[in-house]
Design a protein around this nucleic acid. Structure first.
Lengths: 247, 247
DNA sequence: CGACACCTTGACCAACGTCAAATCCGGTGG
DNA sequence: CCACCGGATTTGACGTTGGTCAAGGTGTCG
């Protein structure tokens, strides 16, 4: 284990907040929990929400804090993570537009959420949202579906963290991001990474160096192209799939 | 990585099934999803369930199968796992009495569930349970709570798999099991392990040998006592807690 | 153009995995 | 009650993957 503790600089949350919001031209409504609601129901939601704006590095929620808000990601990327007392960090997921944030147990957040880049969120006060939930079963049903999806993802990630090699982990990550590009309606043969190598490492249970080395190796093998800091081209996705599925 | 593929012997499911069941003297009702229901609601659930009995090694649900049942664990231990094509296995959790099983996405199970020892389950046909859900919001709410709990557990496990040392993992496991003994109303300074070392290893992302060595070491250090195959006494729980929390 | 993160690469190392050989239980049958 | 069998567990010797430490590069933004 390490004595080299990567201090993960945390900034106090100081989001820009705007009350009253335009669900009408919301770009993620269809892919978010709101997608199942009627116009009248959306109106009731709109009445209790406000929108927030975070800059890269700002903290949205903090592990251990009282869980009195729920969020929908409208734009940007959010990282969720847990820390050990000595600073080791495990990123448990990256949230993209349309994703839901804030599920908690015992009214306390179990993880920290931090803006990776510029992030826009819809915030719902828990009290008021829960009041609505009891009147809008379809929303609760939709949330249960989201939660089920999150559990399935988490199990995949446990398989990755517990049993995959570095190469397999990186291939899995690239393909996961490509799939998400697809879901956002963009081409799936290239990905734009908002996060740093260190974020990727902490997500995959590796070190920055190993992520970097593995990416270089995949590039060497002709499977990917690396363009600047953030872009990766998937040159031979089928080879990556083979790798991911443990070949 | 290994060429040594631990063949995980799988037996075809052939559970004993009994229709019509005694919710009245159910021992896990209070700690299961049923705990939030009224007597009338329980009666409606009772009408659609049947109870099943599995012997050690029998499969309850299989990854990829059509997800048409949901279950409540009444007694025994169930392991949930995912496999890689070459046989590497990751156990994503152990279910104990009162736990819920069967949450799925796209109507397909994302993992396999297998009896560790003799197991009794309550089975609910998905179709019929979902029909009830829409009429019993409190049940759906309770399920959402369970799902939230499962997500929190999964995130803890990701931290363990991605960032903890072998010693920290084993300490975490022992304390987790002790906590569950407590929830079952038994003393928390000793635990009874239904699963093998190999199960523990596949849960912790280690090998049997490393689990065994680490347990021996903890015993050497006076933190635990090992009695026969399945029992572990926690002699210095506070030391284990310190270890778990990364000391 | 220059500063500063971030990223890459190299040399070395340690924790954990692999392979192999006892040893230990727990059940079975005499 | 005791000897024996077989799978599970433990222990030992050694190998490998990925981590650690330490220099360089490189892209981005002022």
């Amino acid at each position: 284990m390490s004595t080299r503790q990567l201090a993960h600089r945390q900034q106090e949350p100081a989001p820009t907040t705007v009350v009253g919001s335009p669900c009408n031209h919301c770009e993620v409504r269809e892919i978010s929990v709101c997608g199942v609601l009627t116009a009248a129901e959306i109106e009731r939601l709109r009445a209790i929400l406000n929108t927030q704006h975070y800059e890269a590095g700002q903290i949205v929620i903090r592990e251990g804090d009282s869980a009195d808000s729920l969020f929908n990601v409208v734009s940007g990327t959010v990282r969720l993570y847990k820390l050990l007392p000595d600073g080791r960090r495990q990123i448990t997921g990256f949230l993209l537009p349309g994703d839901f944030l804030g599920i908690a147990l015992n009214d306390v957040y179990a993880y920290t959420a931090e803006a990776v880049d510029t992030v826009h969120l819809c915030r719902f006060p828990r009290r008021r949202l829960e009041a609505l939930l009891s009147e809008m079963p379809s929303l609760e049903h939709s949330l249960l579906g989201r939660a089920a999806g999150e559990i399935v993802l988490a199990q995949d990630q446990m398989l990755l963290l517990g049993r995959k090699t570095a190469r397999e982990r990186v291939a899995s990550f690239l393909l996961m991001m490509a799939e998400r590009e697809g879901r956002a309606g963009r081409r799936t043969d290239r990905i734009e990474l908002a996060m740093t190598r260190s974020d990727i490492a902490d997500f995959l249970g590796l070190t920055t160096e190993t992520v970097s080395r593995t990416l270089s190796q995949l590039k060497q093998d002709g499977m990917i192209g690396i363009v600047g800091r953030g872009r990766v081209d998937l040159l031979r996705p089928e080879s990556l799939v083979e790798l991911r599925d443990a070949g």
